[in-house]
Design a protein around this nucleic acid. Structure first.
Length: 428
DNA sequence: CCTCCACAGGAAGCGCAGGAGT
DNA sequence: ACTCCTGCGCTTCCTGTGGAGG
């Protein structure tokens, strides 16, 4: 592929030059030289960046610090449970506090260790456990041991080294929902009969009903202390963005009205700081690519649609094959002027489409649940209608813009060939 | 008023894959 | 390495449903 492309470009350049259309690179150079006008430090706008200051979270930082403070005198801090929706600063606060504690521990040469485990990323109990082991310098193979063995090694490591480990289980609800609260139960009991060293847990969850999933025993020991993070207000988001913007961008590249707009848009969506920062970053990237001197409100609007489109694309392209085929069938019917397709039409088209690409079709019953799932995802809308003699069925409407669906289908090399097909129902 | 269409959607069971225990 | 066990995707079978048309 690559080797094919290069000669083309070269040919193009030479061609242009001979035709006397000026130096094709000069514009590229100019644009590239103009670029640094906007971004000063890209890192700052990345989602995993831990800032030195967290506006409007001083109180939470102090509270968490107070709770964990006993660690510095080597007594085990209470376990903490932190609630708050996404983008309310839970992770940032924990990482910030951990970082500061680590600095002190190192300076004072204290036997303290801090671990941060993102339960959504380290998806299994085994992985979470082995990360805890890693944090105290106990090596475990990435597979091959039973969970109980890893647990024992962790316990042994803590005891022998006399280490006090403070571990954050970020988004712990993800772990509990797929594996139950067994691991948490075991971990809260690890300190029993241990002198010197031990384990304190910090759990975070963005599901406020998470407590309901927990065994009362786990709940009581895990939430010895609780912290609640409220969503940021638009004003607070303005402060956060301003602070980041000052580090990330050159003077004057991001005017106040742009920051205000990003803050307002994110505040309207549950005060999610991450969204606000993403929005500003993408807007800046758009401006940069355009070769504009500064970020403007229109860039933010474009950024908003890019992010939204990205989300849709992500959601649709990770759908299982048959869901995609159902969606393709609906798309084809809509494109070919069949208004208000009903279940039967979609199933018939689905079978045709399956035949075209040589896939064994599922039963209508199964397809019916696939449609329900798409409905729940908000990709389609299905309404129950009674057509008297002609039965009772569901009318299904595509909620996602057809061109976005087409983009996803088209990006799959097998499905792309279906886009030109006309369903038999539409031919009549 | 009754029928009967064209499905919806619940219940149960099957085969498979991956994990845990031995 | 081997048996369980469990969850998941799926099929099969089934009962339920509301109103246009007889």
């Amino acid at each position: 592929m690559k080797s094919n492309k290069r000669p083309d470009i070269v040919k193009g350049l030479v061609h242009q030059k001979f035709r006397g259309e000026g130096d094709p690179l000069s514009e590229v150079f100019q644009r590239a030289l103009r670029r640094p006008r906007i971004f000063k430090n890209r890192e700052v706008m990345r989602s995993d960046y831990v800032p030195d200051r967290l506006p409007h979270r001083d109180e939470h930082i102090r509270r968490l610090g107070e709770i964990l403070a006993p660690a510095l005198s080597l007594s085990r801090p209470s376990n903490v449970f932190i609630y708050g929706k996404t983008g309310t600063g839970k992770t940032a606060v924990v990482r910030y506090v951990f970082k500061r504690f680590e600095e002190v521990a190192e300076k004072e040469n204290l036997p303290l260790a801090f671990a941060y485990v993102n339960c959504r990323i380290s998806g299994t109990e085994y992985k979470a456990l082995s990360e805890l082991c890693g944090a105290i310098g106990v090596r475990v193979p990435f597979t091959g041991l039973s969970k109980a063995e890893v647990y024992n090694r962790l316990r042994k490591g803590l005891r022998e080294k006399g280490l006090l480990l403070v571990a954050c289980f970020d988004e712990v609800d993800a772990l509990v929902k797929s594996y139950g609260d067994n691991l948490l139960y075991e971990l809260t009991r690890i300190n029993e009969g241990m002198e010197g060293g031990g384990l304190s847990l910090v759990g975070t969850s963005n599901d406020l009903h998470f407590k309901d999933y927990l065994d009362p025993r786990v709940l009581s020991s895990l939430s010895e202390e609780e912290l609640v993070f409220h969503p940021y207000t638009a004003m607070e988001l303005v402060d956060i963005l301003s602070e980041r913007a000052e580090l990330a961008f050159h003077d004057g590249a991001v005017p106040q009205n742009v920051i205000n707009l990003c803050a307002a848009l994110a505040a309207a969506e549950h005060g999610d700081a991450r969204r606000a920062i993403d929005l500003l970053r993408v807007a800046a990237e758009v401006a940069e690519r355009n070769g504009d001197e500064r970020v403007e409100e229109r860039h933010v609007r474009i950024a908003q649609s890019i992010i939204e489109r990205g989300r849709v694309f992500e959601a649709l392209s990770t759908l299982p094959l048959h869901s995609k085929l159902v969606l393709t069938s609906l798309l084809l019917l809509t494109k070919n002027g069949v208004n208000d397709p009903i279940s039967g039409m979609i199933y018939q088209t689905y079978r045709e489409v399956c035949g075209l690409i040589g896939v064994e079709p599922l039963t209508d019953r199964r397809v019916s649940t696939l449609i329900s799932e798409l409905d729940m995802l908000g990709v389609v809308k299905s309404d129950l209608v009674n057509m008297g003699r002609r039965g009772r069925t569901r009318k299904i409407v595509l909620l996602t813009p057809p061109d976005e669906v087409e983009e996803v289908i088209g990006s799959d090399e097998v499905l792309a060939s279906l886009l030109n097909y006309t369903p038999s129902i539409a031919r009549k």
